[in-house]
Design a protein around this nucleic acid. Structure first.
Lengths: 246, 246
DNA sequence: TCTAACATTTGACAATAGTCAAGGCAAGTT
DNA sequence: AACTTGCCTTGACTATTGTCAAATGTTAGA
């Protein structure tokens, strides 16, 4: 497979580009570049001029913001096929957060101008972008709700549920997508709190924890415990930005 | 002033409609209806079919979500000139939250179809809508950050700062826009916690609290105390959805 | 004016989460 | 095997926030 074909495959993973013209996809493929990043490498920092948007090719990216004294708030952690940095189009051309590779990984960088042109010239693209923004907004709204109504063990349970295959009845085996310290920050808690909260979740729901592998006979207990403190009914038709795109 | 002219005045308060054609504004004015709501009146509940979007004419609207056992998470509290319910266009036609009048107030209800058509037929409108969504997203992102990094007194201080006239040096007098219980829920805390946190803020920054009126010699102390736990520098060019539109 | 209905504050206490320090564990290196 | 490094867990303690109950203010009506 040629490099361009590889890039096209990556582009089509991102929901926003699913229905795009071959012409536009082709342009992005021609001007896009696959780049590598090592663990801990900072791709850009908040307020950098946003010349590119990115799509995760492999690995996970941490988006975050930082105070002067170093406290971090993780905005999101994105898997393969997810786009980021594109909202800078509407934020006076600056990235609104910093981005860091959480492991050795690959990314596709595409010049922002391409997307901007397409949105401005192709009404369908603007509508698609609107859908993408709305989807994200829903995701963020739910995040705020979770932080307000769920305690630490419930948030972990909720995350596990979104990670699990919800269509499937019976026994479930889940593998945590990235390390526990990172997951803790994703859920807005300290690593120590995560460790204790997972232990409490285990005690309350009977899940079996073995390192990064979690097993249970069924999702029922988890649903009962976590979804009680959430306004959405299980299964929440969330776009799972915590699960890898197949 | 005719009823239609009144409605046009209201429509032009909303940022999204600032640059719209007189034709579209006229259509909305013709099909829009001013409605009254009493304190506590529920305008719609989450998952209702979204036939109208709304603009606040006077008073404040609480947007919230609720769990089965009655716990509430306040999504936002909107003042005069702000629109809500419009995102249902991208949420399979259902409202993603419930809305309640926090006092006796007036609202403008406009059929959703009008906005939908305009967005689909007028590329400029789609772009304006994109900007509006991006602005809102920024707002929500910051909210998550505040919940993560700021404690209760700092969140109150931050809210006061956004309420204050930041361009003006020297002594400041602020009047809380709605009652403290509601403000507490807006900031994601219990009324009791709010009361104590305000007392602590007073002690830490020397602000003078008298009922709903708050005075201080300058914003400096507040900035020092609250903005230390935030990634944005003061003054944060937030769109103040907490301050009324002039 | 009086009063009922709320809003706000306060006290006492419980639950939850954060902080700091010390170990344990596992994977990879020398 | 011994060592290093980073991740994770645990203990002890603190800080923050929530809960429940009671007292105090406030306000809009009757």
């Amino acid at each position: 497979m040629s490099s361009t074909d590889q890039i096209i495959t990556v582009l089509k993973l991102e929901y926003l580009f699913k229905g795009c013209s071959d012409d536009f996809i082709g342009q992005m493929a021609a001007q896009g570049r696959i780049i590598s990043a090592n663990k801990g490498q900072v791709l850009f920092v908040s307020h950098d001029e946003a010349a590119y948007f990115y799509i995760v090719v492999s690995g996970w990216v941490k988006l975050f913001r930082e105070t002067l004294d170093g406290a971090q708030a993780v905005v999101d952690i994105l898997p393969t096929g997810h786009m980021f940095g594109e909202t800078s189009l509407f934020e006076n051309g600056e990235y609104p957060f910093s981005a860091e590779a959480t492991e050795s990984m690959k990314l596709l960088a595409v010049p922002m101008g391409l997307l901007q042109q397409e949105i401005e010239n192709n009404p369908k693209m603007a509508l698609a972008m609107l859908s993408a923004m709305a989807r994200y907004r829903k995701h963020q709204d739910r995040e705020i709700e979770h932080r307000t109504l769920q305690n630490a063990p419930q948030r972990i349970g909720c995350f596990l549920l979104r990670l699990a295959d919800q269509s499937h009845e019976g026994a479930v085996k889940i593998h945590l997508p990235y390390d526990k310290t990172l997951l803790a920050s994703r859920l807005g808690m300290q690593p120590e709190t995560f460790s204790r909260a997972l232990a409490k979740l285990k005690e309350k729901t009977g899940i079996k924890v073995n390192g990064a592998t979690i097993e249970m006979d069924s999702l029922d207990q988890l649903v009962k415990y976590s979804c009680a403190a959430c306004s959405s009914e299980f299964p929440c038709n969330d776009l799972p930005a915590c699960r890898k795109v197949e």
